[in-house]
């Protein structure tokens, strides 16, 4: 049943403008980061790692969560409009799979975004005349950042499901991200979903913020995922549908 839901959600992405956001938005922090790097070459002396700190500083702090929020808002907006809730909730599929199907699609689009961020990082590195290839660590951090989307994606998907406005959940994600910076600076990044991706992406750091121990990160992710999925499924089951 979940496969059916994922297939149906993927079909809804056809002709959609979600891909434009996926391609265009990461370009902004890449330009900002590269510009910052080139203007501070005196202090930023670790080559690829220094460029990483600048790229991820803006991307993780200001763009990543709102971008996922935008994907989630877009996906739910389809249902909020034109009475589609009625069709969605009368489809002979378990309610849980309706939510997880959307989450799978969010994860797919996020993975594409992260790959694009990796490509941009590499291209900007070459533009800055950095030697050789990007370090292997950064690929791992990109993947860890993608995993972090499981936490934020679930929360944002839940928020966009409950809030019919397109912009409000994105605003919440932006506020959550900015607040997340405080959590990271206090070393509490595993307790706030929006700071998880900063930890995962190793944002603005050239040494590994998780110290190579990924287990607490995965536990935190799992807890947020289970918590928000359970809340969403409960609401879908108990609340009357307002199409």
């Amino acid at each position: 049943m979940l496969i059916k839901c994922i297939k149906a959600e993927n079909m809804k992405l056809k002709h959609s403008c979600i891909w434009i956001a996926c391609v265009a938005v990461p370009v902004i922090p890449a330009i900002m980061g590269t510009f910052n790097y080139l203007n501070n070459l005196g202090m930023l002396t670790e080559g690829w790692y220094s460029l990483w700190t600048q790229h991820t500083l803006f991307y993780s702090w200001l763009f990543y969560s709102p971008l996922i929020a935008l994907y989630c808002s877009w996906l739910w907006r389809l249902e909020h409009l034109n009475h589609n809730w009625n069709v969605l909730m009368t489809a002979p599929v378990p309610v849980r799979d309706v939510f997880l199907g959307k989450l799978a699609v969010i994860f797919r689009v996020t993975l594409a975004t992260q790959l694009w961020v990796g490509v941009l990082y590499f291209l900007c590195g070459k533009f800055c005349s950095l030697p050789g290839m990007m370090p292997g660590n950064t690929i791992l951090w990109l993947l860890r950042g993608t995993l972090a989307a499981a936490g934020i994606g679930t929360l944002q998907l839940f928020l966009s499901m409950m809030i019919r406005s397109f912009a409000v959940p994105i605003g919440i994600a932006l506020a959550g991200s900015i607040l997340g910076f405080l959590f990271v600076s206090q070393g509490w990044e595993l307790f706030w979903p929006y700071s998880l991706m900063m930890a995962g992406m190793n944002s603005n750091r050239s040494d590994d913020v998780l110290g190579g121990d990924i287990l607490p990160f995965l536990i935190s992710l799992t807890v947020f995922f289970v918590l928000f999925t359970a809340a969403a499924v409960l609401c879908l089951k108990k609340k009357d549908v307002r199409a």
Binding site: M11, K12, K14, H15, S16, L78, L81, N82, H83, N84, W85, N86, V87, T90, A91, P92, A243
Partner: peptide, 18 residues
């Protein structure tokens, strides 16, 4: 029940971009 039921409730639902 839903497997054997078809419905058109309130207004016709649709995805306009498709």
């Amino acid at each position: 029940i839903l497997k054997n039921t078809g419905s058109l409730i309130e207004s016709p639902a649709h995805y306009g971009h498709l």
